[in-house]
Design a protein around this nucleic acid. Structure first.
Lengths: 251, 251
DNA sequence: CGTTTAATTGAGGAAAGTCAAGTGAAGTGG
DNA sequence: CCACTTCACTTGACTTTCCTCAATTAAACG
């Protein structure tokens, strides 16, 4: 592997700014844990090795452990309903993965190269965090939720078709409404078309055409520019996940 | 606004699973803070209002406060070098924004509707967190780094052109190498082409053509499939951010 | 009610997708 | 060590989809 030798003195969490140019300031990777913290984490951690190509965890499976990579590269991905895969992240030494919100892995993980990693049982970790923090754990949850939201955004953008992107966006807004306890028979769009266009990374005309096309196919209906009703949920769900612009006669 | 009446008893942080269908389990939005925690946060918070369209903060500006939305919708976005904007998130009541890693706002924020929000001065907040946590704050940093990484991924995907996506991906790998203290004259790609294709959400042929095209233009050169050298950094930087597939004669 | 801004619609062109065939590299077994 | 098999990658031809740009219509605002 291309990784430098690592002193196995305990889990290491490293961070670098994803938006910083590589040239501006070299060697910015920071070790986030003190030696003390690493040692304490090491007490609840064990080491595992995965062969290249090995499946580390599957999305939807119950979360039992968090992984901290020592050597190698891991990819996390989601499998769409139609079987196509979208890679969420590439993970490198110093990275964490396997965190979850509702007790299930959000993504599948696979070893891109041979991998050595620390396994931190989620129960021990949680106890640990509870001892040290409280409010902070909530902040962590929130941040992690934001993280997954961003990943979902990327997932949306990974879809080539304007229609699918718009439908995923409608699902997004619908979920928000549902979570607020509001009726979801009609979706309210608080933003204008150009905002939607930017979020979906398509041109405003494409947004317009997508709405029109979806209405023409009877999948949605809009009372006005800010209120959309879902007519064919079945078709919507299928289309939102799929890489195909139209569903092959869902009946 | 379409928001329900809110009892202003302090900052509220809410989370819902971005990957959960809206229909499966309604009303899943969870309040992450206890009344106690909200009260304590309220002691360091003040309330601000923004008119629709108001600029709340600008990317790159020094972080002074974190915002917690009470009423309204906010968008956070990044402005690309060529002036085009990519929206990172739409934010709703219960959401936080304005967090930063290096003391600078990662995104600009603008009020999509009229907005009411709590302002939490970053200094007070940090003191607060430090009192309650320690390891947890590090976890927060890490998670936030992951969040921004995901946002960057979305940003990458927002670019229509295969060449630009590939270049952004090379920047990503280069930054990682630089952070590890390894030489960056040559970039090592630990993953195969189909992995890259999935991450960039383009077809393997498109990856191939992009590499070929970039090599033909003298922007990069590849020793073999896993080693790439950047020849024209100037052009690369310009192309990686731009929505245009080729740079209009950078000289 | 007029003016400004947002959204839609239409036509032509560019880019990536798809599918299939061909080439190269890597790993396997004699 | 070399030949064989296999898998990854590349290349080419054709189709699909969206972007661009401009003109038109609809909505928002004073």
């Amino acid at each position: 592997m291309a990784d430098p030798p690592v002193r196995l003195q305990g889990p290491a969490i490293r961070a670098i700014d994803p938006w910083l140019p590589a040239t501006s300031s070299p060697g910015r990777m920071r070790q986030l844990l003190s030696d003390d913290e690493r040692a304490r984490l090491a007490s609840i951690a064990s080491i595992v090795r995965f062969k290249k190509g090995a499946l580390i965890c599957r999305e939807g499976d119950g979360t039992e452990a968090v992984f901290n990579i020592t050597i190698g590269v891991v990819k996390t991905y989601k499998t769409a309903p139609d079987g196509s895969k979208h890679i969420a992240e590439f993970l490198f030494p110093g990275d964490l993965f396997g965190l979850s919100q509702e007790g299930q892995y959000a993504n599948s993980a696979k070893a891109v190269t041979a991998v050595t990693a620390y396994v931190l049982p989620i129960s021990s970790l949680r106890t640990h965090l509870a001892k040290e923090a409280d409010l902070a754990f909530h902040m962590v949850s929130k941040l992690y939720q934001g993280l997954r939201e961003a990943q979902r955004h990327a997932f949306l953008l990974a879809n080539r078709h304007a229609r699918s992107r718009v439908l995923m966006f409608l699902q997004f807004l619908e979920r928000l409404q549902a979570a607020k306890g509001e009726p979801t028979n009609e979706i309210y769009l608080p933003m204008d078309r150009s905002d939607i266009a930017e979020y979906l990374a398509i041109s405003p005309p494409a947004v317009s055409r997508a709405f029109r096309s979806l209405s023409a196919d009877g999948i949605i209906a809009s009372r006005d520019r800010r209120h959309v009703r879902i007519l064919e949920r079945q078709t919507l769900e299928a289309l939102a996940g799929s890489q195909k612009p139209t569903v092959p006669t869902v009946r």
